[in-house]
Amino acid sequence: NGDSPPTVSMAELDHLVQIISKSHLETCQYLREELQQMSWQNFLQDEVERYQSKPREVMWQLCAVKITEAIQYVVEFAKRIDGFMDLCQNDQIVLLKAGSLEVVFVRMCRVFDSQNNTVYFDGKFAGPDVFKALGCDDLITSVFDFAKSMCSLHLTEDELALFSAFVLLSADRSWLQEKLQVEKLQQKIQLALQHVLQKNQREDGVLNKLRCKVSALRSLCSRHTEKLSAFRAIYPDIVRTHFPPLYKELFG
């Protein structure tokens, strides 16, 4: 009935960890070494002001493009997760439509500098003030706070990979046709995540902290949708003609 966790051998869990970690590293957009080479360069004040003085719609379009690029990597990640492509096409679409932006937010902690409260964006590290022209200060603050709290967990790449897969394979999304199959896959991923956390000798509370992040992610994504609706109400033509088609498909 889907309530009892599936029986999985240690070897199977190790294999799942290996596959998902590999998928994550192959599709994570930026390798840690590449980020280190960027030497955590921050935008200068005049560059910040240039972003701030962009028209609202231009900044929205720029962010939509960056989000869409990141989402394309998440789609590739999903495709390489064991069992994802075995789900029916409807459910693959449902899971990505609901979860791809959530995974982008999870992945953000890899490109986030907690000490300076900056994130890698458009070639350098940007603080929340860079995004002022969007007119969504509250959402931006929440996104930065989320990245900071994810960073404070100091997840390894393996742990981050499995948590991303866990988020993506959420069995409680609306409109799933084969909910039970998604549920089984998510339970296996959760067991693999627990397995890795134990192996890495993480304290017991980490899994609970990660579970709390799931609801924070949902809140961030629904607020993004609200902000987009408000923006679209004022600039319908900009969204229609200038926003990336994939972004419109996912959030329209």
């Binding site: 590739e76 679409i93 439509k97 088609p245 994939l246 498909e249 996912l250």
Partner: peptide, 17 residues
């Protein structure tokens, strides 16, 4: 759903590189 998400569907169909 597939009809409304043609690009996503296409990305899913493309073989992984």
């Amino acid at each position: 759903l597939k009809e409304k998400h043609k690009i996503l569907h296409q990305l899913l169909q493309n073989s992984t590189s």
